[in-house]
Simulated scan of single mutants.
Amino acid sequence: MKRFAALALALLVSAGVQAQDIKIGGLLETSGFVASLGQPGLDGAMLAVEQVNAAGGINGRKVQFVNVNSESDNTKTVSAAKRLIEQEKVVAIVGPMSSGSSFAVVDTIEKARVPMISNGASRGIVLPPEQKKFTFLAPLTDVVVQTAMLKDMQAKGIKKIAILNSDVAFGTSGRDSLEKLAGDFGVQIVAKETFGNADTDISPQLTKIRGSDAQATVAWATGPGLAISTKNHRALGIKTPLYLAHSANDFNYLRLAGDSANGVLLPSSKLYVTASLPAGDAQKAVVEGFVRDYEKKYGKLPATFAGNGYDAAMLLMEAIRKAGTDPAAVRDAIEGTKSHVGVTAFYAYSPTDHFGTKPESVVMLTVKSGKFELATAQ
């Protein structure tokens, strides 16, 4: 009888272990200056987890998503990552929306050997890949989107441009990337200006750009700075085209920039223009399904950053499904992903490519009457 009781207890304990939730961590900022990106990112990640759990979880186990709000602070992001790894024992992490916070946390991730898919868009976050083996990206990267943007300029005969960037990691990384790429498309940078991420007036920098012979201006930033630069650009009567970073493909930008946004150009994911995509586009059905499910759950249309969070969570869960819950095996499975069709992009990683997103994921958008539309000249 004692033997039977001991066996029954062992089976119950074993069943409890088998049924234990799989924990995925999140470092998504729901307060502070990146909250307008982090909250949609969290909403997207939570939707992904909800969908996987509704379909039976991963190999019969439910997924638990544990997000720690870093308050858009780099130091707090590092503390949050340590908490997720050491206390919550997460298998993998959906990383910050902020490039700066992503850079700040990479050392912690690599030392702990727990995979993270960051939502920062600076390629430097994962470079060089042989030193950042556990760090990957989900968003469209600066090189991918800038290539689409420079091709658009090339088609329009634009040969001289000015760069206006914010002083945070996303802005400076984007500027550095554009400086390296421009020459390949016959484009010369004739003016460079930087503004503070908290600046409320960028007119002095744009006045200098207006005095140059630039045929177009590229503004590279996140948050309110893009809307402020757009308004100041219009107020100064600058008639040459204004190109924006892909971070402008956000409803908050439209709200803050108002009528000034009409006519801007930006590289983007396909999230806002699914109705204009051809029926054969492999992302069309995926994006339409995401938009439908997101609107049903949250009562509003998703921002681009929601798609980033959704993709990062789905990529992690797909890797866990293939590899189990050992973080090193999950890392290998992410790196072995070759054909994931996501909301933001087509994803294919490799030992030398932790960016993931492919060029065919990008379209050029403009704004008309306060709405995003496909630009006529691609």
Score class of each variant (00 low, 15 high):
residue 2 K to T: 07
residue 7 L to A: 11
residue 10 A to H: 11
residue 15 A to S: 07
residue 24 I to P: 06
residue 32 G to S: 01
residue 35 A to Q: 00
residue 44 G to D: 04
residue 47 L to G: 00
residue 48 A to H: 00
residue 55 A to G: 03
residue 59 N to I: 01
residue 63 V to I: 14
residue 68 V to C: 10
residue 71 E to R: 10
residue 76 K to G: 04
residue 77 T to D: 06
residue 81 A to W: 06
residue 85 I to N: 04
residue 88 E to K: 09
residue 90 V to G: 04
residue 99 S to K: 05
residue 103 F to H: 00
residue 110 E to V: 05
residue 116 M to A: 07
residue 119 N to H: 15
residue 123 R to Y: 11
residue 124 G to Y: 03
residue 131 Q to H: 11
residue 133 K to Y: 08
residue 135 T to V: 08
residue 136 F to L: 02
residue 136 F to T: 00
residue 140 L to F: 01
residue 140 L to V: 05
residue 145 V to P: 07
residue 145 V to M: 12
residue 154 Q to R: 02
residue 156 K to S: 02
residue 158 I to F: 13
residue 159 K to E: 14
residue 167 D to A: 08
residue 170 F to T: 11
residue 171 G to E: 11
residue 171 G to M: 05
residue 171 G to F: 13
residue 175 R to P: 13
residue 175 R to M: 05
residue 177 S to T: 15
residue 177 S to I: 13
residue 179 E to C: 11
residue 179 E to M: 15
residue 180 K to H: 09
residue 182 A to W: 03
residue 182 A to H: 08
residue 187 V to L: 00
residue 191 A to Y: 14
residue 194 T to M: 15
residue 195 F to I: 06
residue 198 A to W: 13
residue 210 R to M: 05
residue 211 G to W: 13
residue 223 G to C: 04
residue 224 P to Y: 00
residue 225 G to N: 02
residue 231 K to T: 06
residue 233 H to G: 08
residue 235 A to Q: 11
residue 238 I to Y: 07
residue 240 T to H: 14
residue 242 L to T: 03
residue 244 L to M: 07
residue 246 H to K: 06
residue 251 F to Q: 10
residue 253 Y to P: 04
residue 257 A to K: 03
residue 258 G to S: 04
residue 259 D to M: 08
residue 259 D to T: 05
residue 268 S to A: 10
residue 268 S to I: 07
residue 272 Y to L: 08
residue 272 Y to I: 04
residue 273 V to Q: 02
residue 274 T to Q: 09
residue 278 P to E: 08
residue 286 V to Q: 07
residue 288 E to Y: 06
residue 291 V to G: 11
residue 292 R to D: 14
residue 293 D to S: 14
residue 294 Y to N: 00
residue 297 K to G: 02
residue 298 Y to K: 03
residue 300 K to C: 12
residue 307 G to N: 02
residue 307 G to I: 06
residue 312 A to P: 00
residue 312 A to F: 12
residue 322 K to E: 07
residue 326 D to E: 15
residue 333 A to L: 09
residue 334 I to H: 04
residue 334 I to A: 04
residue 336 G to A: 06
residue 345 A to W: 09
residue 353 D to A: 01
residue 354 H to V: 03
residue 354 H to P: 03
residue 356 G to F: 06
residue 365 L to T: 00
residue 377 A to R: 15
residue 378 Q to F: 15
